[in-house]
Write a protein that binds this DNA or RNA. Structure first.
Lengths: 168, 168
DNA sequence: GGTCTCATTGACGTTTACGTTATACTTAGT
DNA sequence: ACTAAGTATAACGTAAACGTCAATGAGACC
């Protein structure tokens, strides 16, 4: 019935360890906290920030939203609704979730599902926009190679004329 | 042999028109010029900037590189090598390309092909990174819905217990 | 030919997302 | 216990990418 499990790792990381593990600086971690974007789940009695596993994954999630979607921290704050999305992690580590009533649990799950689906939709939209741009460029690549091939095929054409192949 | 074609549109746009057509502000256009990122191809005798069609498409290309790939203007400047990529446009409007020697034309084409291919590679890389993130989130979505379904199926389980289904 | 609209060149201001000291206090190792 | 390394708060600095005046000038219109 005790809270202590036998072979659990530190479970709590200091800010410098988090920095090394995630690749973000301590300054950035404090800054994000200042914005309300990431609050360490624990503190030592002396005031040191102590992060848990879900905090770490939140860090990497924030970075991905920045890098992959180009979201501002304000937008990320909206997307990550302060709690709902963390359910995504917590729900599967029953350690933390044990003290939730089933109804509250259900609530959080629904919230998390909605948030996650919105994120998914956004990812898909971004993907298709980039895909469209990619297709444009691929088409250009094809035309360029064709032009280039024509230049090699018939270099005998008048010097003042370019590739006029099937134009009009 | 004259340079004037019969029924061509204005062909030259003032900065305000470019702004409305492309959606970027006049300030931004001047700023980009300051960086050497976009030089209007013409000027009126009074010093007004006059843009041509390839300038316009360069504007939208810059914006896409910013928005879709999150590149800095410095990176964009590198990617768009000041001339090579513009060949992509110019090469197909033979109007401008007529006065190029075939050898120079070939040179520019090869340059353009390389640049465009690099851009394509970068797009593909970005696509796969986002795709990976998307897949992660899709997997989470599945697990969440499963957890949610289990909560509905057997609400009779102990209140202190969550979804323990097939765990270990 | 006065008024409007748009453009030009400065120059200073702003926001975002941190970096960089500075100073003081814990914690960790020997 | 002493020293080195890590952390805390606070405050100032910075780079990128523009926004926002301000003063001035050229064109267009009635």
């Amino acid at each position: 019935m005790s809270k202590r499990s036998p072979e659990t790792e530190p479970v709590l990381w200091r800010i410098g360890e988090v920095a090394k593990l995630t690749g973000v600086t301590t300054r950035t971690l404090r800054y994000w906290e200042e914005l309300g974007l990431l609050r360490p789940s624990n503190h030592s009695q002396s005031g040191e920030r102590l992060y848990v596993a879900t905090d770490l994954s939140r860090v990497t999630r924030i970075r991905k939203l920045q890098d992959l979607l180009g979201l501002s921290l304000a937008e990320i704050q909206a997307v990550l609704g302060t709690e709902a999305v963390d359910v995504l992690d917590r729900v599967h580590s029953e350690i933390d979730a044990v003290d939730l009533s089933p109804s509250r649990r259900k609530e959080l799950l629904d919230e998390g599902i909605v948030a996650n689906d919105q994120l998914l939709a956004r990812l898909d939209e971004t993907l298709s926009r980039i895909q469209a741009f990619r297709d444009e460029r691929a088409a250009v690549a094809g035309r360029l190679r064709k032009s280039r091939a024509e230049l090699d095929e018939k270099p005998k054409a008048g010097a003042a004329n370019g590739s006029r192949a099937a134009r009009r």
